[in-house]
Design a binder for these strands. Sequence first.
DNA 1: CTGAGTACGTACCGTGAGTACGTACCGCAG
DNA 2: CTGCGGTACGTACTCACGGTACGTACTCAG
Lengths: 254, 254
Amino acid sequence: MSKPSSKASAASKLLRGGLPSVPGAGRRAQFSAATKRALVDVAERLFTEDGYTGTSLDAIVAGAEVTKGALYHHFNGKRALFEAVFERVEGEAVRVIQAAMKAHRDPWDKAVAGLRAFVDVVQQPGYRRVVVQEAPAVLGYEGVREQEERSSLAVVHDLVGQLLVDRDRPVDAGLVATFSRILFGALAAAGEVVAESDEPTDASRRVEIAFGYLISGMQLLREAGVALPTADELAEPDAIADENAADDESDTRG
Amino acid sequence: MSKPSSKASAASKLLRGGLPSVPGAGRRAQFSAATKRALVDVAERLFTEDGYTGTSLDAIVAGAEVTKGALYHHFNGKRALFEAVFERVEGEAVRVIQAAMKAHRDPWDKAVAGLRAFVDVVQQPGYRRVVVQEAPAVLGYEGVREQEERSSLAVVHDLVGQLLVDRDRPVDAGLVATFSRILFGALAAAGEVVAESDEPTDASRRVEIAFGYLISGMQLLREAGVALPTADELAEPDAIADENAADDESDTRG
DNA sequence: CTGAGTACGTACCGTGAGTACGTACCGCAG
DNA sequence: CTGCGGTACGTACTCACGGTACGTACTCAG
């Protein structure tokens, strides 16, 4: 605790931080990072192929050509290794999606581009297996949410905020968050549909049409002057009755 | 295979089936069913509390006051036991939801009632943990889908079919299926939002408003004459361009 | 009453996650 | 260059847990 070891580690950090222009600085650290990367690489492959419980640490360390000693030196255990894989896969997915959205400036165009990119991403076996299928059971729903909240869900949240926000109408923030999560779930399901389909092209078109239908409806509502309630309106029950009026109209129709 | 044992089991089945008015018939079989139920009961509790890998078979058999011999007599293994728990939880959920929808006849009212019931169901820890969180990793995404396809997803599918179908307009069946899956994913996410929230009442209202917004948009589209493409229209690219026209309008707006 | 079959109980094995400890190597003070 | 502290591993072991093989008591038809 009170040992000067902390001083030494701080010195090494300063060294690496202070000499970024010398790539040869810290050969030791570079080798270390290489084995760590190798472990994550192999783990990502095996977790994707055989799932979490389906892959043994022995298989991972064998693939990375190291031993369990190395693994437990870099990670606290199997969960931690999986988490590292998860973060990598998730991060890469967000990068791809954001890149696809960057090409557009109109929020609705961004939405469509993001939708397509997301559907593509979910088709990748790594994302499907690690993030969608295994992560909830391994890291728990809470842990997955925390990660997604500052990555893929954040992207959706920003987008939904841009879509729903009205100039002089501060839509309830909680409602925007709820909408984002719902849309996120819808997106994940859409991706699953495409990923499972034996004809991804047709499936993608169906997905885009379905989302286009939903989005068109939202646009129509907006043009018709039907807006989501603000935080103030949410507090008073009148706002909800007002909102439900749209539903009740259909009763007279059928 | 060719042994007369099959004859005996058939006889016992005939016995139980032919004498339903005598509850004492087959005391042996009744005890057997009781222990099986006890195993599923305890397993459901422990799986819900500690997850799949978090609960050992020893804990389950201890809770049911039997031994592993009994467990492996009734189930092929841990997975099979989990599957039995899964089917029970899922079946119960469907029962509740269908009961809630039965009270209404208008499809839109049914939708709202089903939505509320589903949101309630997903709040239950058993459904959350077993069906939503653990099942994909344990049974695989395929297995879960097969189960849901003939239970909760089927309910949504029927409902969506009623909502989207036009009198003389046979909307593409694949599109209805896609829509159902997307909505199902949205519902699951909505349930999660409510389940995680520390103020479920407010969260439920937000969820209902969000879905109400989406549904209202769909109703408006329908009233405006915008319909989903039929199977024929889906085949020719013109139909898609026609459908996307609704999106492109917004480009001129912003 | 008796043999066959069921419904368990008991004892054991293999696998795999995690741990304790040894060690070789690097980088630095002297 | 030379000990020396610390890092980056390797090795050997433990223990929990899923699964299996086999023994046994009880039941029930004939």
